[in-house]
């Protein structure tokens, strides 16, 4: 019994504490809020009437959205969209935190100086987004399907199907932001570069082109081959072919947990990236010291390159795609 009454006492102490806390809060008086918001509303209305009031209907992964005029305050909810906005010369009012080099990738650090971070790409903070009073939100269906309705209540929201298709992202954003010319220019430049690369690589390699390529990633407890997705789609656009012995090429990523499957990585050239981490390095050393690794064509031909994880995988935008292409030019010693 004494034990019981002791707990009872604790319980009341806790309760009293909470009650005091609550009373304190109430006592501190309620001021703040109001007033400031109405001014901002007025401003927003002004800018709307100034710009030509062209109303456009945009069809995207989550339906059709009507957008008036040219949005100026945009929030981007995935890395690729942030990259594309910056490439278009627009600084978003809010972005989600980057996967590495947080809060934003170094290659955009200057352009995004002082930008509001609205949480993580997987669970962006809706209250933070609402506070920014954006006039356009760029989202992704795979990440934000369940919050699409709430996002739409904050501002018109367009969503892309994936997070890694930089061309699709750019086209959608061009329409939504009333800047299709700018986007066409960016994509045109990209096409020119792709054509230039293809001409130069054919000249250099002759009959040996097209090369098979593997994009390999080492993790703490396994290794991966990135087949389709962001890097994969860029490499195949450039004319590369996939890994030579891959048994199943329908998967975006092949996860290898056993060193015996190293042969699946076989290709003429291997690009690999990994986190800067001790256990990851250990995996890397284990795998690359395995006899099967030494049998790979790329290893024999001395065509294994370490590349930047951000440009090759985490960014998913048009600037990063160009940086990735720069890398490939450099590794093949081609002139840009």
């Amino acid at each position: 019994m004494p034990k019981l009454s002791l707990q009872k006492k604790n319980f009341f102490v806790l309760f009293t504490l909470l009650l005091t806390f609550a009373l304190l809060l109430v006592g501190c008086g309620e001021k703040t809020s109001n007033s400031s918001s109405s001014q901002e509303n007025d401003k927003a209305e002004e800018s709307n009437t100034e710009s030509e009031s062209s109303s456009r209907e945009i069809t995207h992964a989550m339906g059709t959205t009507t957008i008036e005029g040219t949005p100026t305050k945009i929030v981007t909810l995935y890395q690729g969209a942030t990259d594309v906005a910056v490439a278009m010369g627009i600084k978003p009012v809010g972005v989600v935190e980057s996967w590495a080099e947080a809060p934003v990738y170094n290659y955009m650090k200057n352009e995004l100086d002082g930008v509001a971070i609205v949480g993580q790409e997987t669970q962006p903070n809706l209250e933070e987004i609402a506070k920014l009073k954006p006039d356009l939100i760029i989202a992704s269906k795979v990440r934000h399907e369940e919050i699409y309705d709430q996002l739409s209540q904050i501002a018109p929201t367009v969503a892309h199907e994936t997070v890694f298709d930089f061309k699709g992202t750019a086209e959608m954003m061009g329409q939504a932001m009333n800047q299709e010319d700018k986007v066409n220019e960016l994509l045109g430049d990209w096409d020119t570069r792709v054509a230039d690369f293809q001409a130069k690589i054919k000249e250099k390699l002759g009959d040996k082109w097209p090369f098979h390529v593997s994009v390999v990633n080492f993790r703490a407890d396994h290794a991966r081959i990135y087949v389709t997705g962001y890097a994969g789609s860029i490499l195949s656009e450039l004319g590369f072919q996939g890994p030579k012995n891959l048994t199943d090429d329908s998967l975006e990523i092949v996860k290898l947990t056993d060193k015996e499957s190293i042969t699946q990585m076989n290709a003429d050239v291997i690009y690999m990236f990994m986190e800067n981490d001790e256990t990851v390095k250990k995996t890397y050393e284990d795998w690359t010291n395995h006899p099967l690794w030494k049998e790979l064509d790329a290893v024999k031909a001395n065509q294994v390159y370490q590349v930047d994880e951000i440009n090759w995988n985490l960014a998913g935008g048009i600037t990063s795609a160009n940086l990735m292409l720069d890398d490939i030019y450099d590794k093949f010693e081609l002139e840009k």
Binding site: Q123, L126, V163, G229, E252, I253, K255
Partner: peptide, 23 residues
């Protein structure tokens, strides 16, 4: 293990348990 990255991310969030986006 066999799913793609986006699905894996969603799945991990679900397994942890989240009230995010409740309406």
């Amino acid at each position: 293990v066999i799913s793609n990255v986006a699905a894996t991310t969603k799945a991990y969030l679900w397994l942890t348990g989240s009230l995010y986006g409740a309406n």
